[in-house]
Design a protein around this nucleic acid. Structure first.
Lengths: 336, 336
DNA sequence: TTGTACGCGTTATCAC
DNA sequence: GTGATAACGCGTACAA
C-alpha cells in the first residue's frame, strides 16, 4: 500500500506537503497541490486513518455497548447514534452484552484498548466499580436508557417510574382492578424495576391493593413470556389487564393470551412500553408508553461527542418525555 | 496514559520483555513476568490495540455495511456476525447505507481508510466498479443477502427466486388467482427483483395470467405500504392474496387491509418474506418465507475471517435454504 | 510556501 | 531468557 512517502517521492515534494494537501489544502500552492494529487492517483494512495489516530490520539470512533441489537428499540437508538456520529465523521463499534455484567465489563475494557474516543453504555446492572473507573480516568462516556438523573455521570433516559405509572393509570382509569405486570428480570435491568415501582404507586393511589402474585418476572425469549401470561390467566381470578415492561413482552403476552382463548382487548387489556416502530402495525394496535429511542440515541451521541471535544465541567442528565399512546389493545373493563 | 516504556522502566526490564509478557507469557521467566505484571498495575498500564494494529497491519476489525439496522432481519444477521467476530476477538464497525449507493461507496472508502481487515456488504445495487476495485486490491469482503451464486466474489444469501416462487405457489395452491405482489423498489434491491421473478414464474406454471397492475413497488416506510395495498384493494376486482417482499411490508399490508375493512386471512391472504423473529408474534401469525438471517450473518463472518487469515484460491458462494412457514395469515380462497 | 526531523506505542529482528 | 533498536504512516514544530 502506498504511503505519503511514495506520494512525496513521485510528486517531488516532502511528506509534510503531502500531509498538508490532505489536511490543510488551502495552505498549499495550487500547482503543488495538483502535482501531489496527481501523484496520489498514480500510486493509488489510500489514506491511513489508523496512523493518524495514532499520532493525534483520536480515532473518531465511539464504542456502543447495549444488551442486544435484536430488540428493535435498541436498534432505533443505535441508528440515532450512528446518524449523529456520521455527521462528525465518527464511526461506531458495536458490542452486545446480552444482559451479562461480565461481558459488559469486558467490552468496556477491550473497546478502551482499541482507543475509542468515548463510550455509550446501556448498562445491565450498574457495576459501580467499572463506571467509577471510567470517571476516575476522565474517560468520556454516556449512559443510555439510564435511570439516574443526577450524579457524576452523564446520562440519557426517560422517567421509567412515571412511564409505569402512566401505563397503570390508563388501565385503572378504564376500570381495571386486577392489573398484572410482566416485568423483565429485576437483576438485569433497573429500568424494569423502576417501571414496577410506578405501577405499584399508581395502584396505591387508586386504592387498588397490590397483589404480588400478579407480578411475573419473565425469562429470556418470548416463549418464557407466553408461559408467564398463561400462568397468570390460569388463576382462579385472572387479571383483566396487564402492563408489560416492553413491547416485545407485550406481543408475547398477546399471543399467549390468544392461545388460551382470551381476546385482546375484550378479555385482557395489554399495555406495552417503548413504542417501537412496529407497535402500531400489529393487531390489535398496541397501547404503549412511547420513549423516543431514536432521539435518545441522538442525544447520547451529541453529549458524548461534545465531551470528547472538551471535558465539560458538569455531567449532563437528559431525561426525555415518555408519552402514553392509546391504541387498540386496551379497553374498558366490562363486568361479566 | 502509561505505555510499555513506563512499565519497562518500573520493572527494570526492556520494552521487548514487557511486550513478551503481554503476547508470549510462557517465553518469560516467571519471576520476571511477575515483576512486569506488578509494574503494570503500579502505573495502571493499559494496552494500546491501535499501536499493535499499526505495526501488525491487522486491526481485528471488520466493517459491516447494510441498508439499515432498523429492519429486524438485518439486526439478526448483525448479531450473528458479531457473535462470530467476538469469538476471534474481532469487532464490528457499523455503517448504514439507507439504500443509497453513494453512501455505500463512501462507507467502503472510509472503512478501508480505517484499516478494517475486511468488509461484509449488503449491497443496495451492485455498483460494479466499487466491488471490482475491492477485488483488484485483494481486499477481503463478503456479500451478504446476495443474489449472486457464482463469480469472483464470495457471497452468502438465499435463493430469492425460489422463495418468491414458494410464497406464490402456496397462495396458488390455496386457490387464489388474483395474487398481488408488494415489492420493494427494484432499483434499490435486486433481492426484491428476484422474488418478483419467482412470483411471475409460479403464476405462469399455474396458468394464472400475469397482471402488471397487481404489482406495486412500495416506497420507504410503512405508510407508503398502506397506500399501496389500499390502492390495490380499491380496484374493481381486488386481489384475494398478496405476496409481500418482506415481513415489514406484510405487517403494513395487513394493517392497511384492516383499515379498509378487509379481514386477514378471510378476505385477503398475506405472505411475507424473512421470517423475522416477531413474525410469529403478530396476529394473525404471519405466513412467511423464512431465511436464516442469524446464520447467514455467522456464515458471512466465518468466510470473511477465513479470508483475512489467508487468501483463498476460490471465492465461496453459500446459498442457504429458505423455508415456507405456513401460519395464519393465509387461507383457502372462498368464493363469495 | 515548503522541507527536516522527531514522536506516537507497539512488534519484530537481531544480538547477547 | 533478555535487551537494543529499527520499523510502521502520519502529524507537527520548527527551520528555511
Amino acid at each position: 500500500m502506498a504511503t505519503i512517502h511514495d506520494v512525496a517521492k513521485i510528486a517531488g515534494v516532502s511528506t509534510a506537503t503531502v500531509s498538508r494537501v490532505i489536511n490543510l489544502p488551502h495552505k498549499v500552492r495550487p500547482e503543488t497541490r495538483e502535482r501531489v494529487e496527481r501523484a496520489m492517483k498514480v500510486c493509488r494512495y489510500q489514506y491511513n486513518a489508523l496512523a493518524r489516530g495514532f499520532v493525534t490520539k483520536r480515532t473518531n470512533t465511539i464504542g456502543l455497548i447495549m444488551p442486544t441489537i435484536s430488540n428493535p428499540v435498541f436498534a432505533e437508538s443505535t441508528r440515532g447514534i450512528q446518524d449523529v456520529a456520521g455527521q462528525s465523521d465518527f464511526h461506531v463499534i458495536l458490542g452486545n452484552s446480552y444482559y451479562d455484567g461480565d461481558k459488559e465489563a469486558k467490552l468496556i475494557e477491550v473497546l478502551r484498548e482499541r482507543q475509542v474516543d468515548g463510550l455509550i453504555i446501556t448498562s445491565t446492572n450498574m457495576k459501580g466499580d467499572i463506571l467509577r473507573r471510567l470517571l476516575r480516568d476522565d474517560f468520556p462516556f454516556v449512559l443510555l436508557y439510564s435511570t439516574v438523573r443526577k450524579g457524576p455521570m452523564s446520562a440519557v433516559g426517560v422517567d421509567n417510574f412515571l412511564g409505569g405509572y402512566m401505563a397503570t393509570e390508563h388501565l385503572a382509569g378504564l376500570g381495571h382492578t386486577r392489573i398484572a405486570m410482566l416485568a423483565g428480570s429485576f437483576n438485569i435491568s433497573d429500568r424494569s424495576f423502576h417501571r414496577w415501582h410506578g405501577y405499584k404507586k399508581c395502584l396505591k393511589d387508586y386504592g387498588i391493593p397490590y397483589d404480588p402474585s400478579l407480578l411475573k418476572q419473565t425469562g429470556f425469549g418470548l416463549g418464557s413470556v407466553k408461559e408467564c401470561i398463561q400462568a397468570l390467566l390460569s388463576k382462579d381470578r385472572p387479571p383483566t389487564a396487564v402492563f408489560c415492561s416492553n413491547d416485545l413482552v407485550a406481543l408475547g403476552a398477546m399471543e399467549g393470551a390468544r392461545e388460551k382463548g382470551f381476546r385482546v382487548p375484550e378479555d385482557l387489556s395489554v399495555v406495552g412500553f417503548d413504542g417501537m416502530p412496529l407497535s402500531s402495525y400489529v393487531y390489535p394496535r398496541l397501547t404503549t408508553v412511547y420513549q423516543p429511542a431514536y432521539d435518545m440515541g441522538r442525544r447520547a451521541a451529541d453529549i458524548l461527542l461534545a465531551q470528547t471535544r472538551e471535558k465539560p465541567d458538569k455531567p449532563v442528565h437528559d431525561m426525555l418525555d415518555v408519552q402514553l399512546v392509546v391504541r387498540d389493545s386496551t379497553a374498558p373493563l366490562v363486568s361479566p
